[in-house]
Amino acid sequence: MGDSRLRVGLYLSGTVVGLVLLLGVIAPFVPYDPADAVDYDQLLQAPGMGHIFGTDGQGRDVAMRLLKGTEAFFLPGLMAAALATVFGALCGAVSGYAGGWLRGGVLGTMQLIDTLPRLVFIILVCTILNPSIYLIAFVAAVLFVPSIATVIRRRVEALGSEDYILAHVAHGFRPVRILLYHILWLQCRPLLIRQATYVFGYVLFVEVALSYLGDYGVQEPDPSWGNMVAQARGLRGVSAWPWAVPAVAIVVTIAGFLAFGNLLARADEEEVR
């Protein structure tokens, strides 16, 4: 039941994810000089031959800027997703399994981080350090560690009292193996997939927000999806393409990643039944 719908959703969102990954991988290898791309003979062209998404207010190809714009969030997003997931899983596992000062220390640190409002804190970091997107992604990852750790900790605590985990102890497995393989890998994978795609989506969101607000994100003339929208703000009523294309790309990408994570996790869960 619902199996075919799940599969369709998985294919659809998988296509979005695959496309973004493909763009993200090839973008760095496409030569592009944003200063050189300005062409005042081609302002605000509608989509057509040569410019599949048209051109912006300075005659630059929107499709090209969209492609190069992925560089602003792709690697940082992957990095943040990986960091947050790995550290979140480890902190959750440690605080769920260990006792005493270790558990208390980890839990306390998590709670402390969790009190920070994410976007505000990131903007605060930006105003102080004016950092690269990588540092921003790192901060975002750290901010996500507590929520992932909490989910994992609850799971570890719940499974820790299950008889079959005791049976694994009785069988002679090392606690480290039980924790990392039998609990985290085999039982928490769906949770981790969900969280990882969420963090990736969040980094794109942060990048867009910062670039749109203007002071701390990617600076013109370098493209990013956020500053593309920001820049085309003035073109309302003149031409929709320069802002509609990146805006749709942002929404579709974030939604696609979240849906993919969710559906993949569900598929992973359902495989057992």
């Binding site: 299950e162 008889d163 079959y164 009785a170 002679g172 497995f173 090392r174 085999l186």
Partner: peptide, 23 residues
Amino acid sequence: LRERRRSFQMVFQNQTANLHPKM
């Protein structure tokens, strides 16, 4: 103790308890 455990094994009462549900 882990080394010794292979010499004495326990079959748990709960029949699902002896097996990992995902393997």
